Amino acid sequence: MAHIIVFGNEKGGSGKSTTCMHTATALVRAGLRVGVLDLDLRQRTFTRYLENRVDYGARHGVQLPTPEVMGLPKIDRADLSEGENPFDKSLSLAVAELEDKVDFIVIDCPGSHTRLSQVAHSLADTLVTPLNDSFVDFDLLARIDPDSATIIGPSVYSEMVWHARQLRAKAGLKPIDWIVLRNRLGAQEMHNKRKMGQALEDLAKRIGFRVAPGFTERVIFRELFPRGMTLLDLKDIGIANLNLSNVAARQEVRDLIRALNLPNVDITV
């Protein structure tokens, strides 16, 4: 059975699709078979990333390791059983078609609460939640007292993950390995950065996730999108001499793959 990695939160602008694309590409470059599903049916950022990648390779004659894209099948409501949800069936059919052909299924969820996203979370073996290093984004996970910085209680997204865990437990599936990524970390050790780190560590103990460093804010991540490239592809497109910033960014990708602790993945990718 394929290992399912779900990238999700309920807030846009956290670098979710960029993180998703780098993870999927890293796994393909490690010699693994990867299928991807983009559940953001409106923006389709992950799909556009892959389309740009295929187009760039075709135009420049470059063979780039690329995951297999799977679209969601259209469901005829006449074929549904009584009470069956069309989104549930569509996602189930797509996963079923991929899971015997690939080692990993990577699912990119929209930055909002949808039925597809909710179902995808319950399918996750590994759940990755990229989060900007800000208390604005932290509010997605938990409410915090502004004076004492103590955690008052879980917020909407954490409650959805808890519900997904309950569904998996009832189905006899293994628990979700939930990782929260601190994206767009500042280079300097600022007071807010320390408070954010402490709040995440405290919350991790209460609701059960691991904290890992994500990607620092770098221009190159935005520049790569039109070509569908990742930092692991630069030598393939003729950029052999990387500057220090690019070398550091590529190391962040490798550190991310190690932090995910996925089964049968070579961390030297």
Rank of each mutant, 00 (worst) to 15 (best):
V119R: 12
S122V: 00
E159A: 12
T126F: 07
D125C: 03
E99I: 10
D125R: 03
E97D: 12
P130F: 01
N132T: 15
S117C: 04
L116Y: 07
W162F: 13
S155V: 08
D100E: 15
V136M: 06
C109Y: 00
S148N: 03
L140H: 02
V95L: 14
P110S: 00
S155A: 15
C109Q: 06
S122Q: 05
S92G: 15
D100I: 09
L131N: 07
A120T: 08
V128K: 00
S158Y: 10
A94C: 08
S155C: 11
H121T: 09
D125N: 06
A120I: 07
D139F: 05
T114M: 03
V136G: 02
T129F: 03
I152S: 02
S112A: 12
D108A: 11
V128G: 04
L98H: 07
E99D: 15
A120M: 05
G153D: 12
D133Q: 15
D125I: 03
R143H: 11
P110I: 01
P130Q: 00
V128R: 03
L116K: 06
V128H: 02
D139P: 05
L131M: 15
S148I: 04
A94S: 12
G111C: 04
Q118V: 06
V119S: 04
V95R: 06
F104E: 14
R115W: 07
L98Q: 11
P146L: 03
I144S: 01
D137N: 05
D147H: 13
Y157S: 10
E159C: 08
G111S: 03
A124R: 00
S158K: 09
L131S: 14
I152N: 03
Y157A: 09
S134M: 06
S92Q: 15
R115V: 14
A94T: 12
D125T: 00
A142N: 00
F138E: 01
E99S: 08
R115A: 10
A142P: 04
E97K: 08
V102R: 11
H121N: 10
N132Y: 09
R143Y: 10
V95W: 01
H113Q: 08
I105R: 13
D103C: 10
D100K: 14
V136N: 04
L93G: 04
R115E: 11
D103Q: 13
R115N: 10
T129S: 14
S112V: 04
D103F: 08
K101P: 06
L123Y: 12
I151L: 07
V106W: 00
C109L: 07
C109V: 10
I105H: 09
V156D: 13
L123K: 11
S112E: 05
P110F: 01
V161I: 15
V161T: 09
L93E: 12
G153K: 09
V119Q: 02
L131G: 02
S112N: 08
P154V: 13
V102Q: 09
V161Q: 05
L140P: 01
D108P: 11
L123V: 01
I151M: 00
C109E: 02
S112C: 05
A142E: 03
W162A: 15
P146Q: 04
D147A: 15
E159M: 13
S148M: 02
A94V: 12
V119F: 04
D137S: 06
